[in-house]
Design a protein around this nucleic acid. Structure first.
Lengths: 213, 213, 213, 213
DNA sequence: CATGAATGAGTTTTCATTCAT
DNA sequence: CATGAATGAAAACTCATTCAT
């Protein structure tokens, strides 16, 4: 019945990667089934054997985005016992790593927050919101280790962190947010804006806000 | 382009409002020229007299989004001499007011930062980045009034503020970002998440980060 | 709004005739929009300006079938005061004439009574059932003129007549019903079965059944 | 073809019944091979081992329709020696019984007479025309028993009878012909039109036409 | 022999854009 | 200038048929 699941792992990956590439480049509405099939080296009909329709294909991809983020980003840092600052740095660096490894999946994930994607964002499990819990636990653990002033509310700090995280991620996939970073980092158009610079900027900021006197 | 400028002001507004409504509801790809023309009470051919194509129409709308934000948000607060905290609150409240007054334009602006809008965000004048300068000047003025600890870098604080601003705006138009706010504010699904709550949460956060001991 | 009605009469007829030809040849499901457009010398898109979809196009054709039958068959005989037998003969001859003039429309009408056309036969006004009233009035007028034995019930005779009429019509468009006529008229395969023969056979039958002693 | 014959009787019946159900519900064009295979509990490929293609499958079904009608309708009444009127009544009742027992086969048979089925009706053996012979022999036997006025031609009466028979059968499967019956029997829309009423109406009619003074 | 995955041409329908009036 | 009818390529999706396993 689940024709797609029966395919060899390699072929599954190949198809999802092809579709994800198209969706990342042109968006859900812009990407065409025909083009996806050509990239995936399968026939038009085959795709409809594997997925009920375009929508279902997109959901499957979103599920994979989720898996990537949950397994390779959120969960990764709970076991390791690094200092708060190191944890945050590693989290940001891991976002960049994931973006290098799965650029198209990250783009698609980022797009979930955009307009006209309600169809998808509403139906996705709130698991996507797990990001929040992970960041909150990151904060509360640091607090237990006395790395964070006690009077700073966990949610407040977690929200601040998550803002940095999400806008850093957006800057990797969106021209607009990349420019936004540039303007606050005072980096000229002809100068390179590396992820390293962004990460350092964010870490400095956190340092400043957390350890005032 | 020229043809459109020659139209009476009222008709111009009517056409842009109609198009903006369609684009906001269905997105750039989903909105159809035919539907826009019907809403705008003009003929199909007329639209193509006023704008070279769908793309140009969208650019004109983006320009108007820019104007709204620049004139009614960014510039508004430079003349008034309120305290830093009041300025920030008024800025957030003004975002909400603008969203109530021009919901469709705000949606379209918010969408610029999303994937697949590179076509537009790249070609837009960097004027959109003025947001940055305004927030930076907001900060530096406050610093001159000694409302902000001297060792806090202007850009760093401005970036933090702008993060709050932009994600607050996103939460007004995107299901995903609304949910994100909910999760950090610990608000249950059946409970209302008002803008007031969001604004207060943000202001409290800023307070905490700026005035640590 | 009603784009089709605005077309010049000639073009309207040309399009409907083309579509009717396709539908008559291949049936509702077998006929393709593309083929219809080619025959009608219009573009694919034009057809969808004129009719909402394939179904609506078919309904418009059915309406025309109705008009043809009502105006040129049913109503035609009420004004003329011929004898009963002459009226019946003229009715049958008129069926044949209509079939010669509008063979495809007649085929489509005949198809309404077939399986899988419930979608259409149910939604068509019961005007199609007017056939019954005309035949009944044909009978009752003849009875008033004492051409028909008083004890023969109007409905009973009308049903008998209408059976002949409808099966005569079917024999013009359906291979199966043509063969059926052959077998009762004892006409061999290599011999021609003209409409004249069928009509005479029917008239003789009516004569026999009405005037027994 | 040969492959199908080799299957166990039960499986053959199961497959044909499944296909017939689909064809009856959706028509020849509407029914899909996939759906038929699922109903028949066989694989897609198997079907193409048993039948060359969709067309041949339909022919085999038509052959079975023929067998049903020939063995259980036409031939059934030659051996029994009932009065003419009883024979006719039993014939009509048997049509109803067969429709109850094999509704789908009867629908398909009825559809043969409709437009766009020439492909099939032309290629079918003229055995389908045996109906005629049976009705004719029904009449001639009655005449020998002096139940029918001598001057009534066998073919003429047989045709009249067969018209009733075939239109009664059509009324069981076609919305259009059911309505037609209603209009001549003067039965309102909210009132039930039973087969009993139709049969009695037909028998009364035959009585009237055969035994005039 | 049987399977059911794969094919790809086919379906109906939409829509940005053009152009004769 | 304005119109809106016309275009036709392209969209998502289906399905009878084939063929490697």
């Amino acid at each position: 019945m689940n024709a797609f699941a029966k395919l060899p792992q390699k072929k599954q990956v190949h198809i999802l990667d092809a579709a994800t590439e198209s969706f990342a480049e042109k968006g859900y509405f812009g990407a065409s089934i025909k083009e996806i099939c050509q990239r995936a080296d399968i026939s038009n009909g085959a795709l409809y054997k594997y997925f009920r329709n375009k929508e279902e294909l997109y959901f499957v991809i979103l599920k994979k985005c989720q898996d990537i983020l949950v397994q390779q980003l959120y969960e990764r840092h709970t076991q390791l016992n690094h200092s708060f600052k190191t944890t945050v740095r590693m989290y940001l660096e891991q976002i960049e790593t994931l973006h290098k490894k799965y650029p198209n999946y990250i783009r698609i994930y980022a797009n979930l927050g955009s307009n006209n994607m309600e169809l998808f964002s509403q139906k996705m499990h709130d698991d996507f919101m797990k990001s929040g819990s992970y960041v909150i636990s990151m904060v509360s653990e640091a607090k237990q280790r006395n790395e964070i002033p006690q009077h700073i509310d966990d949610n407040v700090l977690a929200f601040l962190l998550d803002n940095y995280f999400i806008l850093f991620l957006y800057s990797l996939v969106s021209d607009y947010h990349e420019k936004r970073f540039r303007s606050f980092l005072r980096i000229k158009e002809n100068e390179a804006l590396t992820s390293k610079k962004k990460i350092n900027f964010i870490l400095d900021a956190i340092e400043i806000f957390m350890h005032q006197r």
